[in-house]
Nucleic acid binder design. Structure first.
Lengths: 145, 145
DNA sequence: CCCATTAATTATCATTTGATAACTAAATGG
DNA sequence: CCATTTAGTTATCAAATGATAATTAATGGG
């Protein structure tokens, strides 16, 4: 198949993924935190404990801005900072109990929407979907560094 | 397989897709337009001609804000508005020649990065990738309305 | 023909986000 | 030890984005 067509297919696919993740996650975020703050919390939830630098790198937010947003999140008691014994410049960040509960709730609702989305798939189809996820993850959407 | 694990796999996958599209498109946008403006241009490029309402719906930007951004893009000569004979409230929007050239260039560069990303895949693997894209597109990342 | 709806515009305001400079403190490596 | 690098903070500013209200004009259904 033509490279042009292949690329076209990829673009359509990526657009669909973005749209579906938008649908799955819309109206999930509590009103008292901003979109960027919510995305930081999602990242912490999945990768905790993390350092400020990791958040900055992974979310593509500058250190000063990451520091600022994290300070707000800490003031809202959604996450906590812990000193690292080996390197006292660093801080490890975790969700607080409240923050964890909030994100559990959020993921639970998103998970429900996701299951609803695939509810019509048979067991064989689910197998097929999983293999497809593995293929694309390893051959197209891999991270290189 | 467990639903929890399945969902977990989905989350990881969606995250990878977002990260890879970020990598493919970073530093592509010209400096004289904002991120939102660029994303609007991408949408117009792929779907033209489109109405203002379509842009508003698909990009999840309110009508007033869509109108404002589109006005700026028109002033920069990147797109053009045409009246619709059948319904004089509507306007169809297309890229201007300059805008089209800009987006062609952008897509060309992104396409190059994409091809580089899959350059090590064999012909059979490319077939496999394509089938995987089709499977996921139809069974997971479909749009419903 | 009137009323409700749709499409788009303009103006305005608040908030969020991004960018930069200047700083402290700790580690690391010759 | 001293210089450099790393980790994070604070302050400040500008720009981008989001939200709302009020308006115009055209359409479409009873």
């Amino acid at each position: 198949m033509d490279q042009e067509v292949f690329f076209q297919k990829f673009v359509t696919f990526a657009t669909s993924v973005h749209e579906v993740t938008y649908e799955l996650t819309k109206d999930i975020k509590p009103n008292d935190i901003t979109p960027v703050q919510y995305s930081i919390l999602e990242y912490i939830a999945v990768s905790q404990p993390v350092t400020l630098s990791q958040i900055s790198d992974c979310k593509h937010i500058s250190m000063p801005n990451t520091s600022r947003e994290l300070k707000k999140l800490t003031e809202k008691n959604l996450c906590e900072k812990f000193d690292v014994a080996e390197d006292r410049r660093k801080q490890l960040i975790r969700l607080s109990e409240v923050g964890q509960a909030m994100m559990n709730e959020a993921f639970h609702r998103i998970g429900g929407r996701f299951l609803d989305r695939i509810k019509d798939a048979s067991a064989e189809e689910l197998e097929e979907i999983q293999r497809a996820l593995d293929v694309l993850q390893s051959k197209v959407f891999y991270g290189d560094k």
